[in-house]
Amino acid sequence: MTSIVGHFFLFTLVAIGGLIVPLLIGRLVRPKLPTAEKDSIYECGEPTIGSSYIQFDLRFYVVALLFIIFDVEVAFFFPWAMVYGTATQLADPALSEPQREVLSQTLLGDANATAVAADTARQLAWTGFFDILVFFSVLLVGFAYVWKRGDLDWVRAVAEQAKQAAARPRTPPPVEAPAPSQPREPVGV
């Protein structure tokens, strides 16, 4: 128990030192030459106009977050494909014993691994198949939720107006009867 506390204390000291030491070095090394131009607010090469307290459109962040989430989740398909492909190859009963040993070593990541039996590989392949179905269905449910919420619509106001216009019953505009023509009075009388 004492060694765990000692390790935790040492880890905490290293973590705090790893945060504080670069800040202190930067404070000592960097030049201190403040000028009015350096202290002015600068954004994207343009001088600021108006207040910075404006309502910013969050759709850019939503699109970026959705991309990152789905991109990271799709990256999990690659290790699965490696395991599933190797397991389906090992499930072939016609595979020779030396080939089975090489594939088993690839699948297990161990150079001293023994050959995996075809039945075990078939069971692993089916388990992997159902695992990816669950994973992919969770992705699809998340995608459907985001789509239903309207987060994929670039301009929500335009999309909402289109929905409201489609929901309204289409009735032709009322036809007005023409006004009865009145006789004209002669000009200059």
Rank of each mutant, 00 (worst) to 15 (best):
V72A: 12
Q89L: 08
M82I: 15
K38V: 10
V83E: 09
I20Q: 06
A81D: 02
S96F: 00
Q99K: 11
R59M: 06
A91T: 02
L65K: 07
I41H: 05
T48N: 07
R27Y: 08
A117S: 15
L33F: 11
A118V: 11
T12I: 12
A115V: 13
E97P: 06
P79K: 11
S96K: 04
G17P: 00
G109M: 05
L19A: 07
P31D: 09
T48Q: 11
Y42F: 14
I68C: 07
G50D: 03
Y61F: 13
G50F: 02
F70T: 02
V83I: 13
F11Y: 08
I69R: 01
F60Y: 14
L66W: 06
P31K: 09
P34A: 10
V63M: 12
S104M: 02
M82H: 14
P31E: 11
W80P: 01
I16L: 10
Y61T: 06
N112S: 15
P34Q: 09
E97G: 09
Q55S: 07
Q105T: 08
V102L: 10
S51H: 03
A115E: 09
S104E: 04
R59D: 02
V102F: 02
T88P: 00
L95I: 14
L33C: 05
S104D: 06
S104V: 05
E43K: 08
S52W: 03
E101R: 13
L95K: 03
V102Y: 01
P47F: 09
F60S: 14
L65C: 12
T35Y: 10
G109V: 06
V21P: 01
L65P: 04
K32V: 10
L19T: 07
Y61C: 05
D39E: 12
V62I: 13
L23E: 03
L13A: 15
Y53M: 08
L58G: 15
E101W: 00
K38F: 11
P93K: 13
S52P: 03
D57K: 07
P34E: 10
T86D: 07
P31L: 07
I20C: 06
L103G: 01
E73I: 10
E46Y: 11
F67A: 04
T106Y: 09
A117Q: 12
V29M: 06
V83C: 03
Q99M: 12
L65N: 09
I25N: 04
A111S: 15
Y84E: 04
F56H: 12
F78Q: 07
D119H: 10
P93C: 09
D119C: 01
F56L: 14
A94S: 13
V63L: 13
A118N: 11
L108N: 06
F78L: 14
V14A: 12
P79H: 11
S52I: 05
A36I: 10
Y61A: 11
Q99W: 00
I25M: 08
L95A: 03
T12L: 13
L90A: 03
L23A: 02
E46K: 14
I16P: 00
D92C: 02
T86Y: 04
S40R: 15
L108M: 13
